[in-house]
Simulated assay, not measured.
Amino acid sequence: MTKTEHGARRGRRAAAGMLSLLAVGMAVPTIAHANVVPTLGRGKPAIGISRAIADNDRPEQDRSADAARKPAALLTFAGIRPGMAVADVMPGRGYFTRLFSNVVGPKGHVYAIVPAWLAQKKPTAADAVNAIAQEAAFANVSVSVEPLETLSVPRPLDVVWTSQNYHDIYYGQSADAALAFDKAAFAALRPGGSLVIVDHVALPGGVTADIAKLHRIDPAIIRQQAEAAGFVFQTDSTVLANPSDPHTVPVFDPSIRGKTDQVVLKFVKPAR
């Protein structure tokens, strides 16, 4: 074989090698991209609160409620961050469930917890959040129907959240049931974790039966119960306050529905 032929062969080998490297190099971004894009049921990547609110996977019904429910302020207040484990207790149609899912991302998890007594009273109580959990975009959501005095979750929680529901536990069940829920939340949280309660405000000193019909609760009762369970009150927010609410009509009354005076409280499980 002549030198010219040897040179030509080396050239062909080099060219083939270069093509192979180029092929590998072109394949790498595709593989990396597959690891980033949430296929295979992993759900979406964690995103910031503002992007979570703007996410296209949220239904129009949720978006139309944003102006009144102020999710950006509430999620910031609660300290929801990527990787967190959050319990959404009595999640209703999943308004906050979706938002929590978007923010905590695939390294976090959202436990939508429906009380057993509510499911017995309303067999469809878990249907909405079960539907959310079956969507690929919300693969980090799981649903359980269980007594609120247990909160059986597989990992320590960072936040236990309930919105517009504590009065249903306290008045719809009993003060003891509400305290049992607080104690279960305390046990399920990691040291330093938070219990966040949002609810419609009732005037203090009212007759229990009357207040129960209003679907409201005195914030002092919430604080007393949480502290009795071992929590330390950390702070509150006035983001949902409405001083023009008369506090004497049911929260479903057309004159005040969606505009009630609401308390937002954060309690912390002591680190020690």
Rank of each mutant, 00 (worst) to 15 (best):
L148Q: 15
S163Q: 01
V196N: 14
P219M: 04
A220G: 04
P156V: 14
Q224I: 03
Q224Y: 10
A131K: 07
V110H: 03
I217L: 12
V145N: 07
V153M: 10
T248G: 02
V159F: 06
G193P: 09
F186R: 10
P204C: 00
A133I: 03
R155E: 10
A125V: 01
V141I: 08
Q173P: 00
A184R: 13
F138M: 08
E149M: 03
S244A: 04
T248Q: 07
F138S: 05
V201K: 13
S142I: 07
Y111S: 12
A133G: 01
W161C: 11
D158N: 15
P106G: 08
G206C: 02
P243H: 04
A177M: 07
V153I: 14
H200W: 06
A112F: 02
F138C: 03
A136F: 12
T208F: 02
S142L: 04
A226E: 06
G206K: 06
A119P: 06
G206A: 01
F181V: 08
V207N: 06
T124K: 07
A188G: 12
T235K: 11
G206Y: 10
W117M: 14
P147Y: 07
Y111T: 07
D168N: 11
D158R: 15
V110Q: 05
L240F: 01
T238W: 09
R190S: 02
P154I: 08
D158V: 11
A133R: 01
